[in-house]
Nucleic acid binder design. Sequence first.
RNA 1: GGGGUUGUGGUGUAGCCUGGCUAGCAUAUGAGGUUUGGGACUUCAUGACCCCGGUUCAAAUCCGGGCAACCCCA
Length: 479
Amino acid sequence: MAKKTEEGITIEKEKDIAEWYSQVCLKSELADYGSVKGTMVIRPRGYQIWQEIQDYFNKNIIEKTNVENAYFPLFVPESFFKKESQHAEGFQPEVAWLDKKVTGEGERLAIRPTSETIIYDSFSKWIRSYRDLPMKINQWCNIVRWETEATKLFLRSREFLWQEGHCAYETESECSKETINYIKLYEKLCKELLAIPVIVGQKTEKEKFAGAEKTYTIESFMPDGKALQCGTSHELGQGFAKAFKISFTDKNENPEIPWQNSWGLSTRLIGAIVMVHSDNKGLVLPPTLVKNKIAIIPIIKGEDKKVLKKAKEIEQTLKSFNPILDDRLEYTPGWKYHEYELNGIPIRIEIGPKDLEKNQAVVIRRDNGQKKFVPLKNLKKVVEEELKKMHKDLYDKAEKFLKSKIISAKNFNDLKKGIEERKLVLAPFCGSESCEDEIKEKTKGATTRCVPFGSKIPKSDCIHCKKKATCEVYFSKSY
RNA sequence: GGGGUUGUGGUGUAGCCUGGCUAGCAUAUGAGGUUUGGGACUUCAUGACCCCGGUUCAAAUCCGGGCAACCCCA
């Protein structure tokens, strides 16, 4: 049973989204601030969402693509870390180190900002023959990236939870194909489980993962006009394999180097869900993510026991939705409505004396407040339908929003104006890192999000430097 | 990286400028009573000045340092 909360959300999403976001996360009891700067406590309600994501992931991605879950150590020796130079350089600014004084050993230890290095050290011992390939490993773990900038619950914290998949293949083509497949599976997860539409594409040279040849990404767009990277899949080529001396003997007894990819998504997704779906009453969640999909609220008058009896019958009928029957007498129905709205319970069912007479119950949807008077015999069917509809409606609404924010830029002014208006701007681009830096500076913070899948090489010139464009890329501000 | 704002019971705040009584209010929490179709009422109880130092007869208030949070800009 939910505990009493002080009050609801006191600021509107439209007025101050940063404050609103914090309030929703804290007051709906998804998370709390940790005592150490930049850390967060994921509370049971938040962790439950993470578990739903894990369940979906293990069932639909890990099992179906023959990946095995495992666990690797938290600490990465500095010597491992330095083996792949681009990787080391890229992550260097945000790694937290354990000093030699602490370790008592000859070298510092990094607290993993990602686990390529320590996992590939194991791969070098485990991979001997083509018969060992493909090797496909995933781990669920925590990660530390010592951000110095302002942090935000779920979206940017120094420690977070994620999964990281690491695979090694015999051939480049198999590796490429699978790298793309994983990003598409992430897209599917966002749609089916989170009701969040994303743009799938490839990162530019500047934005790709340190040490990767190609990085694919899914990008969602937040109501405040900032993009949020929701998951990535990296084609690593043979760089790490060479650095970690991973090799195998092929069918013809020749020594070969395997091709690798890695892919991950994190608790950041929980932040995306809050941002995209929730409203001024509090949390709104796609029903798939919620264990207790229904709150049943009996309206009890005096000594009358009939209503409560009926409410208990309804509880039994709807058992598969794990309903909460809130028969507490110390709170008024109105109070309970607010409480379950704040906490994002998808459907509320009210049953009172008036309903008893008509043999019905009142079904209210959390996302749109829609109220339906439903004959008791149809209750289960209606609830089932509404839950399904709710998921679709949430997705459709978010997709409509996303589409409304996308514009195409023909010249640099369009781009600048679009960024000022907090849009997601598609523009022809040369692909150079320095050009990207200059655009960021001139637009006050626009970065490239991705080159969307299926886009063609434009015939026009780069929106900024006027050299020949090599791709069409989305620009926006981002988290 | 640069700038700004703010730290008072569990939570949100008043008081600070102009130092001085028992640190006020709301909400939450515990116990009791009355209630129950959109955050009911009531009685009693519990509970706070971020940390360290300085000035002073006297510091929540003034000064210095630290720590933390939030916001804006790069």
